[in-house]
Design a protein around this nucleic acid. Structure first.
Lengths: 203, 203
DNA sequence: TAGTGGTCTAGACCACAGT
DNA sequence: CTGTGGTCTAGACCACTAT
């Protein structure tokens, strides 16, 4: 799942490629992906492709139907979206509330780096890259302590929420400002402010 | 995931075997599972075993560490449990609230069958079988309509909550009564009662 | 019936962990 | 170093879908 893994193995390269195609909208929702076509395109056997399909299905970017293969996932239905937003807020706020004092200087440096990537993506108007770094930012907050495997709860929810969805129009900079506000509050050890800013960013 | 699949393929047999070993406590938490040992025991190659490990890891029954393989999952930490319970309640109550009117006679017949299995498991004092049917009951409620893929959100949460945990002591019959109360309310089209009974059962 | 996915085999090589 | 996991290959067979 790390970016180094993603360039070292065939799986990582294929997964990275397909993920960007899906998040950027180059692949239409509901479009079928055939194992054989992908494996030929990348010059590998079916094994790695199947493994990538499994990963992306688990993350909610593909939808698998028995004996019919995988299709590109659609946005969550309007009836599901309020639930997904609420669940994601609950998880992230819960973790931030419980482990706020365990956030270290190193964690903050890490978040600053991600925030820079977010700023770059916003300036370039690159929505799919912004989604990647946006998710990295929130993942880093959840992982900034040792206890428990909250990521396993968070990931299937957060990724489904991100499919072809953005609250921001052409000016993506608002996304940067929202994340900057979160980080500023963390840096000044303002727990209530951080939670408020985090909640406002998950909509 | 259906029981017919589970007996037809090697994967299904291995998954069923390991799942029962884990849920029943025959395998100690934190115990390492080696691919080679399992594949030799079932007389298959590493492929199916790796696939089963992936499935059980996704379900939260195993924990995977890079280059170190899988271990039997421990109970969620005490700090995580309140969150897990809350998330599971939110999902199930949300679905029941939205789709209560779509529950058909067939769905109720299905739930009645599962309730019978729950009663049998309670009478026998068979905790691991009870866990299986308990989860089947809730899964059937969530799936008793066509819209959306709520199961993908629910499963990682519900299974983690069930690892080696029971609110009931030696007398498991209370579990049966709780589920009977849910089904009775559904049958009499009492939405508020069903939601209350469902919430009380998720603790 | 032809195509595709689902499953499985029996090898292989490399990276990393523990000794 | 040795063992194990992570990855990949190049086949194979069956079940199911689509036509």
């Amino acid at each position: 799942m790390t970016s180094t893994d993603e360039i070292r193995t065939m799986q990582g390269q294929i997964a990275e490629y397909l993920r960007l195609d899906i998040l950027s909208g180059r692949l239409e929702p509901d479009q079928a992906l055939r194992e054989q076509e992908i494996s030929e395109r990348f010059g590998v056997s079916r094994g790695p492709v199947r493994e990538v399909f499994r990963q992306l299905t688990q993350q909610g970017l593909l939808v698998s139907t028995p004996n019919k293969g995988v299709r590109v996932a659609q946005q969550p239905s309007p009836s599901m979206r309020p639930l997904i937003i609420e669940l994601r807020q609950r998880i992230e706020l819960y973790v931030l509330d419980r482990f706020f004092d365990q956030i270290t200087k190193d964690d903050i440096v890490n978040l600053e780096g991600i925030l820079t990537d977010i700023k770059d993506a916003c300036r370039k108007g690159d929505k799919s890259t912004l989604v990647e770094h946006d998710l990295r930012f929130h993942k880093a907050i959840i992982e900034s302590h040792e206890n428990g495997d909250y990521i396993a709860l968070w990931q299937p929810i957060a990724l489904r929420m991100s499919i072809r969805y953005s609250r921001f129009g052409d000016d993506l900079m608002d996304s940067f400002y929202e994340h900057k506000r979160i980080l500023d509050a963390i840096r000044s050890r303002d727990k209530a402010g951080a939670m408020e800013a985090l909640k406002a960013n998950i909509q």
